[in-house]
């Protein structure tokens, strides 16, 4: 097992050499990730991981991918999507043009779910979805819109629980154990690199989703990211967080109102 000092060394290397700042990520979680990298990529010692990372630029993408958690699913927490559909989309529908940001989109399951939701509300044609992540590898996967067929049973169940009205399989074609989502959905999504730790606001949105990303940030970094969302959100726009994340204790909380007792969706009131 590696020590806290070794982790600090490694994260400082990554920051100094490549500009990725993981130093304000929660410690226990990042330690688990780095231990996992040591095991999965079969490094005999910490020193060898550090050497590889310092001297092989191509390994960086792998490291960033492995250190970030990329576990996601379509229509995850179906009730959340139901509330989006029932309480948020009717307001978004009043805009001539809808801009949505998925911050930390990972491999894209959520943004494709959103595109389906918009399609069924007849809003997709006037929507643009920005899906960003720090990790080039996952963005490339997301851009392909290709997912494993074995997950579709569960995604289809989630879709129905969220209030989906069609056959889920209408949205993709199946080939060789994989499914590819319809081009119509993908055309409305822009995939781009963006780092919540160091990059700035790049547009104004009516809805921002950032679910299960802030749990990996310390308090300082959480406040930074929430500030960034606040800057990027129009007045009366919506901010959606993960099931166990909250705006409570954030400096901007007073300007926001939670729209549902259970789901973590806030509206920016001023």
């Amino acid at each position: 097992m590696i020590s806290d000092e070794q982790i600090e060394l490694l994260l400082n290397d990554v920051l100094e050499l490549y500009g990725y700042d993981f130093t304000n990520y929660t410690k226990a979680s990042i330690k688990r990730r780095i231990n996992r990298i040591l095991a999965v990529d079969r490094f005999p010692s910490f020193a060898e991981l550090r050497y590889r990372l310092r001297n092989d630029k191509t390994y960086l993408n792998r490291f960033v991918e492995a250190i970030s958690v990329n576990v996601t699913e379509m229509f995850r927490d179906p009730q959340f999507f139901r509330i989006l559909k029932e309480k948020v989309l009717p307001h978004l529908a009043t805009y001539p043009y809808i801009r949505i940001w998925h911050a930390g989109c990972s491999t894209g399951e959520e943004v494709y779910s959103m595109a389906i939701l918009l399609k069924e509300a007849n809003l997709l044609h006037k929507s643009l979805l920005y899906a960003t992540d720090i990790n080039q590898e996952v963005l490339e996967k997301a851009r392909q819109g290709v997912f494993s067929l074995s997950n579709m049973k569960q995604y289809s169940e989630n879709y129905i629980l969220s209030g989906g009205i069609k056959a889920f399989s209408d949205y993709y074609i199946t080939t060789n154990g994989h499914v590819k989502f319809n081009e119509e959905l993908r055309r409305k999504i822009i995939f781009a690199m963006h780092n919540l730790v160091s990059d700035r606001s790049f547009n104004e949105f009516q809805l921002i989703l950032c679910r299960n990303v802030l749990i990996y940030f310390d308090k300082h970094l959480q406040d930074r990211a929430i500030g960034l969302f606040d800057e990027s959100l129009e007045t009366l726009g919506y901010l959606a967080l993960g099931a166990k994340e909250t705006l409570r204790f954030a400096p901007i909380e007073k300007n926001y109102k939670q729209i549902d007792g259970k789901e973590k969706i806030w509206r920016k009131m001023k």
Partner: peptide, 21 residues
Amino acid sequence: APANYHLLIEKDYTFSLDVSE
């Protein structure tokens, strides 16, 4: 521990959550 999250305990005695594998 909440359902569907890993529960981790930090050295400053705070809890953190994680949705990894």
